[in-house]
Structure formats: structure tokens, C-alpha cells
């Protein structure tokens, strides 16, 4: 497995540049977020270039999910700048952000349990988009073959791994330019984690930009070009995956339990 994956990886690495500047597809600066009067994010900066896979790492409760939710427009109280594909989306509603091609895949999957697999995909469907890979249910079934066998099964009667595939496929139906993948490997069996890693590398090959959050450093290292570490709501580290692998001090400070 690793050999095949490393092959993908070396073939598609786009360099180690942090992807800042005017060329960035997603640019987040000074992002703050609150729940009630509790401040969760503190001046988060993040820039992602087209075609990159970036891992947002950090422990439980560090602010990974809130960062994604705030970017996707799902946190009511937020401030700062979020620009996506040249548009300022910091004050936009979540459906507008999704329609610009920024896809969000929640950590807890949130499959529509009453709807069948096909119906779940239909909810996510948007028109094809310039510059983004274009998806149909059939194409998604080649990416996630398990789903092809259960087109008419209600989402509520699927295993956790199948739901994780469906939630990604559902977001891909919107033909996004970029997806925010919140902890894609969480709670999955090792075999499914491996499939998930392959799928993400496949998406990268298609030209999709991916930001994923992870606690599983091993998984993140398999699929990502760069790492960003968040701790108590603030960014503490940026570097390439290789740099992070070499820096035991950083890993011990922010990632090990």
C-alpha cells in the first residue's frame, strides 16, 4: 500500500511553498469565532493554494472543527477575513459559500438518515463548475465502490465507514473547487482508513484542493503536502509534512497526548 501511495505523492507534490499571496485559492486572516461569550478561535491565518492538500492538526478541542465551521459560514459569531477564489465570503451565508464551490464535510458525517444514498447525493448536487472536477453519482461510485451496491439504502442503515464515504461523495456532488474534510479517518476501521487515504489522493490527482483536519498524524502524513498546527484556537506551527516529521519537539508540544 505505502509504495503505491508514495508513488502518487511524489508524482503530485507541487513544491513546499506555503501558498500565500494573491495566488491562494482560500485565504483566511485574523479569523475569530465565539460560541456565546466563549472565544474559540484567536486570529487564525491560513492560506491554501490551488491543488494543495493541507492538514490542520491539533488535539481534541484545539479548534479544528470550529475553524472549518467558521470558514463554511456555520458559526454565527465570527470576524476576520475569509476570501475564497477571489471573493470575500466572510459575511456570506453558508449556502452562498457552498455555491461558490467551497465544500464542507462535517466530522460527524450528518447523513440524512431518512434519505437513500442516491437522495443524499441529490441534495448535494450543483451545476458543473469551471476549473473544478465534475462529478456524477456513477463517477463517485468508482471512487467509493461500496456505495454503488447500496444506492437505495437509507442513510440510517449504513455503517460508519459507508456513511463517511457518503458524506464526502455528497459534498463532491456540488463540484467544489476545494473541500474542508473534518477528521476523515476518525473512528474508522484500518481497512477503511486506507481506502479513505486512497480516495483523498485520487481527489488530489483530479485537481481538487483539500484541507483536512486530523489527530492521526500518520494518516495526515500519507496524504498531505503541508501541515498547520492549531492549539487553543491559535495557529502554532506551519511547515511541510517532511519538516514536521523531522521536528520531534513540535510534535511532542502540540500533537502527542
Amino acid at each position: 500500500m505505502t509504495a503505491a501511495m508514495t508513488g502518487h505523492r511524489t508524482a503530485t507534490v507541487t513544491g513546499t511553498g506555503p501558498g500565500t499571496g494573491a495566488g491562494a485559492l482560500l485565504e483566511v486572516s485574523e479569523l475569530d469565532a465565539w460560541y456565546g461569550r466563549a472565544r474559540i478561535l484567536n486570529q487564525v491565518d491560513l492560506a491554501v493554494a490551488r491543488g494543495e492538500v493541507v492538514a490542520l492538526l491539533g488535539r481534541n478541542g484545539a479548534g479544528k472543527s470550529t475553524t472549518f465551521r467558521a470558514i463554511a459560514g456555520l458559526v454565527e459569531q465570527r470576524s476576520g477575513r475569509v476570501s475564497f477564489a477571489g471573493t470575500d465570503v466572510s459575511r456570506r451565508a453558508s449556502y452562498e459559500i457552498a455555491r461558490l464551490g467551497l465544500g464542507y464535510v462535517p466530522e460527524d458525517r450528518r447523513i440524512f438518515t431518512d434519505l437513500t444514498v442516491m437522495e443524499n447525493l441529490e441534495v448535494g448536487r450543483q451545476a458543473p463548475r469551471n476549473g473544478a472536477p465534475s462529478w456524477t453519482p456513477e463517477r463517485l461510485f468508482t471512487l467509493f465502490p461500496n456505495l454503488a451496491e447500496m444506492r437505495n439504502r437509507p442513510g440510517g442503515r449504513m455503517s460508519g465507514g459507508e456513511q463517511q464515504m457518503l458524506t464526502i461523495a455528497r459534498t463532491l456532488m456540488g463540484n467544489p473547487l476545494l473541500i474542508l474534510l473534518d477528521e476523515p479517518s476518525e473512528g474508522l476501521a484500518p481497512r477503511i482508513v486506507e481506502m479513505m487515504a486512497n480516495a483523498i489522493l485520487e481527489l488530489k490527482k483530479e485537481g481538487l484542493t483539500v484541507v483536512l483536519s486530523e489527530q492521526n498524524l500518520h494518516f495526515a502524513a500519507l496524504v498531505s503536502d503541508r501541515a498547520v498546527i492549531i492549539e487553543t484556537g491559535a495557529i502554532r506551527y506551519r511547515g511541510t509534512m517532511a519538516e514536521l516529521a523531522a521536528d520531534e519537539e513540535v510534535r511532542r508540544a502540540y500533537l502527542t497526548m
Partner: peptide, 20 residues
């Protein structure tokens, strides 16, 4: 289908690009 999805989870339906 969108109505049924929104019945179950309004926020997620919106996050998928549906104007509520």
C-alpha cells in the same frame, strides 16, 4: 428531497448549497 433533507438537518442542507 430537499424538503425531506431540511426536515432532518436544516444546517447541513444549507451547507450543501441549498437556499433555505
Amino acid at each position: 428531497i430537499l424538503v425531506r433533507a431540511a426536515t432532518e438537518d436544516r444546517e447541513m442542507t444549507g451547507a450543501l448549497g441549498v437556499k433555505q
